[in-house]
Simulated assay, not measured.
Amino acid sequence: MKRKFRSEKTGYLFILPWFIGLLIFTIGPMIFSLILSFSKWDIITGIDSIQFVGLENFVNIFHDELFYQSLKVTFIFALVSVPLYQIIAILVAMLLNMRTRGMKFFRLIFFMPSVIPAVAVSMMWLMILNPEYGILNRALDLFGIIGPAWLQDPDYALSALMVMGIWGVGNTIIIYLSGLQGVPEELYEAADLDGAGVVKRFLNITVPMISPTIFFNLIMGIIGGFQYFTQAFVMTNGGPLNSTLFYNLFLYNKAFVSYEMGYASALSWILFGIIMVFTLIVIRSSSAWVYYNGDDEKD
């Protein structure tokens, strides 16, 4: 018993720094923001100036037109970009999984954009999407196509941000690549003997075998899609005409531009609830489409 207690004590001591960090930097701020969501505070004055207002912040939020506009923009972006990025990442990962000379170099090329800081990427794409001297519109001119004013046009600004996001799916590609490399070659060989084509092999072997990877990337994609902020903040700041006013950008403006910290805290908890609902939907549905290696043994 003494040896077991001593071993457990050592383990607890090792995780103590992490646990303290969790309390100070995660749980503590979450509790404080929950308190602020029922209060008014301008963040400039001291904590003593916090005024409890009950549900007033939440009532005001649901009467705010910009709240619904930010929800609309964020939902459109998430519903389009998350499936689009997953499909592109899977297809590219399948190409990178081919046994060809120099493939490690191509894997590096596709992965590198994902490690570049988001602000640097945003500044680069501001130049690419510039309607006057941007290389995208100049490339379109070669085919006789007049390029739009991408980020200055409310009809194209959100789509431009979605297209830009394709450039940075390297992390997702690498995760799919690791999942593909775990698919047994024997399954493909058996499918070849049965005369299965490329599409059948993909749908009946590849997709089920990498379904846990799809599940993970889908969850992370949903969370990332609803928390989209940096690119919109740097490139459009919500414009033009609020066409790129993402939820997190709206929250930021309320907290650090209007100094309505209570209002912003209420917004953050609403976002937490939205992400939680969509995440739980995916998790609850996973039993119908996610396959694990041990499932056959359990059956």
Score class of each variant (00 low, 15 high):
Tyr68Phe: 09
Tyr68Glu: 00
Ser70Gly: 10
Ser70His: 01
Leu71Glu: 01
Lys72Pro: 11
Val73Gly: 04
Val73Ile: 07
Thr74Gln: 06
Thr74Pro: 05
Phe75Glu: 05
Phe77His: 00
Leu79Thr: 10
Leu79Asn: 06
Leu79Phe: 14
Ile87Ala: 11
Ala93Phe: 06
Arg99Ile: 11
Thr100Arg: 15
Thr100Trp: 14
Arg101Tyr: 08
Arg101Ala: 07
Met103Glu: 08
Phe105Asn: 10
Phe106Ile: 06
Arg107Cys: 09
Leu108Pro: 14
Met112Ala: 14
Met112Cys: 13
Met112Trp: 15
Val115Asp: 03
Pro117His: 03
Val119Pro: 01
Ala120Phe: 01
Ala120Tyr: 04
Met123His: 05
Asn130Thr: 05
Leu136Gln: 07
Asn137Tyr: 00
Arg138Lys: 13
Ala139Gln: 09
Leu142Phe: 12
Leu142Trp: 10
Ile146Ala: 15
Ile146Val: 15
Ala149Phe: 06
Trp150Arg: 01
Trp150Phe: 07
Trp150Ile: 01
Leu151Cys: 00
Leu151Ile: 05
Asp153Lys: 01
Pro154Lys: 07
Tyr156Asn: 00
Ala160Asp: 02
Met162His: 08
Val163Ser: 08
Met164His: 13
Gly165Leu: 03
Trp167Ser: 01
Thr172Ile: 02
Ile173Asp: 03
Ile174Asn: 04
Leu180His: 08
Gln181Ile: 12
Gln181His: 11
Gln181Tyr: 11
Gln181Gly: 14
Gln181Val: 06
Val183Leu: 03
Glu186Cys: 09
Leu187His: 05
Ala190Cys: 13
Gly195Ile: 11
Gly197Met: 10
Val198Thr: 15
